[in-house]
Design a binder for these strands. Structure first.
Length: 832
RNA sequence: GCCGGUGUGGCGGAAUUGGCAGACGCGCUGGACUCAAAAUCCAGUUCCUUCACGGGAGUAUCGGUUCGACUCCGAUCACCGGCACCA
């Protein structure tokens, strides 16, 4: 679950490295101050989740990272800072806050490293986690580490396995033969992303499609609910739309066709799915997927060779190649015919890979006059094109729009919607078809031929029985080995570990453990539940605690997880809801996708481009607070923005400016900070409290920080800084720059922790002015600005505007046609 | 090809519901401080025009709706992301 796998050395910028503490003045020393507060927070268990029943609960969650050997990337802290600011603000606002972090630590890189070096993946993973944790802590995030979790920990994956077993018991986990990418040279199955141009990424060996027994999860059983419940959640509309498209609901009909028979052949039939049953009279041939089960049975003797050759050709193509070459339609006639149930016409049956065995019924009725793909195919193979709708010109292209039906017997004269209804009724009445809803969504291929994943807790017995590992024997532990080798058979490396694989039951019956493991998506599909009750040994989490915290109030991560992770997690959550384990139908109430941080050349950061920035270097040179301020100030959270060393330095300059505003050269509070309020900062202070509170709540951190800058600019212009405003400001900036603010808070004389100091409030009376500036336009162009009393009468305002000397020049001797007056805002004079 | 998103100064970006375009920051220019520089503080900074007051143009391009458009509508162009023959 990680988008940042590449890294390289920090591009040092000596020009800006002026922030060492070698001067005479006591300037702000981020290294000392940040270390001090990180130590204090750890010692005080500052961020331990509170469970005060008198407070409301808030759950702020980050998508947990895959702890790669490369360490943290500057992209990680963007989302983490956003949730951290929210968590810190909510603590100050009096919430119990659950803000946890953990590790999605199963995955391919560790396995490959182990294969290459002979190291144990768990040891290597533990080192990576330690490094990630060190880096994350160096940025001052307020995680409750007592709730840290790790998907590779047996006490965690015990419950991942438990969920699998519940699904199995409900018939939602099943085995099927599915094609995989098989590399005989490597002796392993490779993932799609490891295949480049039909060859393995490592070694460049050929890859073959090979059907293997695989575990599947029946996510399709939840398709309709996954679609409907998108309406319950507060997610970006674009993400919802992507999920809707992925689920891909389409309404249509299934229609049964008989295969034309003679005296020598038995009666056979098959079913097609179509969204346009109204065009049945325009069907001129039928196409089956090459893998369709009927193909071999119906192919005539003289077409056998051609069909076999075509199927062979297809089997050598990967999915990608099949689609890449899609511009040009290919196919073969089977020699057989189908009977159109509407008019008993004989239609030739073809096979072609443009029909997918995995969608619908794997067979279609082709209506080339009204379907673009069928049209291309018919053109290529000279098949008849018969229009059944008025409109369009079928000599040029397929007409896929609406129109009046023709050549369609009882449908003639009807439009599309009516014709579809009438045809479905007719099909149902004759018993040759019915209304049908189809989804693009396919079942989830849940097994991987890998060592480094959760073992699937299943035993295959010699008598053919398949059983689950009993629940009281979970977790089924991944056996330790220093010798991970390909099995050579396509099975995972676990197949080599015969001590583990072979089992015997109490009756002496022999069995073999499942050697497939779960995909990385498994552990990440429910981890947010475990944070709620991470040490529970009886249940995956206590139901009442889940009721207290769910759904997650704020979930932030990269947009690349828009579909898969978020759909899988929703699916598991709904299943757990159905069996009474979780209290809500949806897991994540509010979702937000952070954007990408690009390199300073406006390109995606990557090792090969040499534009990767390492957060360790930034923390060392500028401090964690600076990095946090910069990443939040550089633009909207969801935008992709280029890294700028100058911008980073500017953020540090702002923090130094804040420091100097309150602290003198001897490291003491400035004497300008007083209990006297001369009123000069009343307005800007109250505006700042309001804007920052609203903006942080809406995740508009860039504009919130800009308002804090406005306050600082104003504060520099006055002589007296009222202490309550200074304290309020420190609290407002604390979520973004917690270390420096904690230090100033201490210098202000506070023993108590800033973390739980009450969030400031504003007084609305300071936000309203007695006078307002009203703009006066002539024909929509700004001409004059007037200072007038607030809520001045419309007529008076109009009179004052028209009396203005400068304005008269623009009216001249033209006629005033109309005057639009919006109180406290605008007067627009329309002249002719 | 389809779906989604984005186009605003030299740069990153602001702009409630259609009502002062350019907040804030970077960069740049000038001033103060300094022997000098850096740092800091103050001021200015969309473009054209004007000594100045002022005026004109301007939110990718073209058109529309409106008293009034960065904002709404239509078309076009560019860039970014996702999907891949889903019947």
């Amino acid at each position: 679950m990680d988008q940042f796998l590449s890294s390289t050395a920090f591009k040092g910028n000596t020009k800006k490295s002026v922030y060492f503490n070698g001067g005479i003045k006591m300037s702000y020393n981020h290294t000392v101050v940040e270390k001090k507060w990180q130590r204090n927070w750890k010692a005080a268990h500052e961020f331990k989740t509170t469970t005060d029943p008198n407070k409301k609960n808030y759950y702020a969650l980050d998508m947990f990272p895959y702890p790669s050997g490369q360490g943290l990337h500057v992209g990680h802290p963007e989302g983490y800072t956003a949730t951290d600011i929210t968590a810190r603000m909510k603590r100050a606002q009096g919430y119990n806050v659950l803000h946890p972090m953990g590790w999605d630590a199963f995955g391919l890189p560790a396995e490959q490293y182990a294969l290459n070096t002979g190291h144990e993946p768990s040891e290597f993973t533990a080192e990576n986690i330690a490094n990630f944790k060190r880096q994350i802590n160096s940025l001052g995030f307020s995680y409750d580490w007592d709730r840290e979790l790790n998907t590779t920990d047996p006490s965690y994956y015990k419950w991942t396995q438990w969920i699998f077993e519940q699904m199995y018991k409900k018939g939602l986990a099943y085995e099927a033969e599915v094609a995989v990418n098989w590399s005989p040279d490597l002796g392993t199955v490779v993932a799609n992303e490891e295949v480049i141009d039909g060859k393995t990424e490592r070694g460049g060996f050929p890859v073959y499609r090979k059907p293997m027994r695989q575990w599947m999860l029946k996510i399709t059983a939840y398709a309709q609910r996954l679609l409907d419940d998108l309406d319950l959640i507060d997610w970006p509309e674009s993400i919802k739309e992507m999920q809707r498209n992925w689920i891909g609901r389409s309404e249509g009909a299934e229609i049964d066709f008989d295969v034309a028979t003679d005296q020598t052949t038995a009666k056979k039939s098959f079913t097609v799915f179509t969204t346009r049953p109204d065009t049945l009279f325009g069907a001129s041939y039928v196409v089956m997927a090459p893998e369709h089960e009927l193909v071999d049975q119906i192919t005539t003797a003289d077409q056998k060779d051609a069909v076999a050759a075509y199927k062979d050709e297809i089997s050598h193509k990967s999915d990608l190649e099949r689609t890449d070459l899609s511009k040009d339609k290919t196919g073969v006639f089977t020699g057989a015919y189908a009977i159109n149930p509407a008019n008993n016409e004989k239609l030739p049956i073809w096979i072609s890979d443009y029909v997918l065995v995995s969608y619908g019924t794997g067979a279609i009725m082709a209506v080339p006059a009204h379907d673009t793909r069928d049209y291309e195919f018919a053109q290529k193979f000279n098949l008849p094109i018969k229009p059944v709708l008025q409109g369009g010109d079928v000599t040029k292209e397929a007409f896929t729009g609406d129109g009046v039906h023709i050549n369609s017997d009882f449908l003639d004269g009807l439009d599309k919607d009516d014709a579809i209804k009438k045809m479905i009724d007719w099909l149902a009445e004759k018993g040759v078809g019915e209304k049908k809803v189809n989804f693009k969504l396919r079942d989830w291929l849940f097994s991987r031929q890998r060592y480094w994943g959760e073992p699937i807790p299943v035993i295959h017995w010699e008598d053919g029985e398949t059983t689950l590992v009993p629940e009281d024997e979970l977790p089924l532990r991944l056996p330790k080995t220093h010798d991970i080798k390909p099995s050579g058979t396509g099975e995972s490396p676990l197949a080599n570990l015969t001590d583990w694989v072979n089992v015997v039951d109490e009756n002496g019956r022999k069995g073999r453990r499942e050697t497939n493991t779960m995909p990385q998506w498994a552990g990440s599909s429910w981890y947010y539940l475990r944070y709620v009750d991470p040490h529970n040994s009886e249940k995956l989490a206590d139901f009442d605690k889940l009721k207290d915290w769910l759904p997650v109030d704020l979930y932030i991560g990269g947009a690349e997880h828009a579909v898969l992770h978020l759909l899988y997690a929703r699916f598991w959550h709904k299943f757990l809801y159905d069996i009474g384990v979780v209290p809500t139908p949806e897991p994540f109430q509010k979702l937000y996708n952070q954007g990408m941080i690009l390199g300073d050349n406006h390109e995606k950061m990557s090792k090969s481009k040499g534009n990767v920035v390492n957060p360790d270097e930034v923390v060392e040179q500028y401090g964690a607070d600076t990095l946090r301020v910069y990443e939040m100030f550089m633009g909207p959270l969801d935008a992709s923005i280029s890294w700028s060393e100058d911008g980073l330095a500017g953020s540090r300059r702002f923090l130094d400016r804040v420091w100097r505003l309150f602290i003198d050269d001897d490291g003491k509070l400035r004497d300008r900070i007083t209990t006297v309020d001369d009123g000069r900062l009343d307005r800007v202070y109250n505006q700042t409290v309001k804007k920052v509170t609203d903006d942080f709540e809406d995740l508009h951190f860039n504009t919130g920080i800009s308002q804090l800058m406005v306050f600082v600019n104003e504060a520099y212009k006055v002589d007296a800084l009222p202490v309550q405003y200074v304290e309020g400001f420190v609290k407002l900036l604390a979520p973004v720059a917690p270390h420096m603010m904690a230090e100033i808070w201490e210098k202000l004389g506070h023993q108590d922790s800033l973390t739980y100091a009450k969030w400031p409030t504003f007084d609305a009376k300071f936000l309203v002015a007695d006078e307002v500036e009203v703009i006066v336009q002539v024909n929509g162009k700004l001409r004059v600005k007037l200072q007038v009393a607030k809520d001045l009468d419309q007529a008076v305002l109009q009179e004052q505007a028209l009396a203005d000397e400068h304005l008269k020049k623009f009216i001249g001797d033209k006629k005033v046609v109309k005057v639009i007056v919006i109180p406290n805002k605008i007067v627009n004079i329309v002249v002719k």
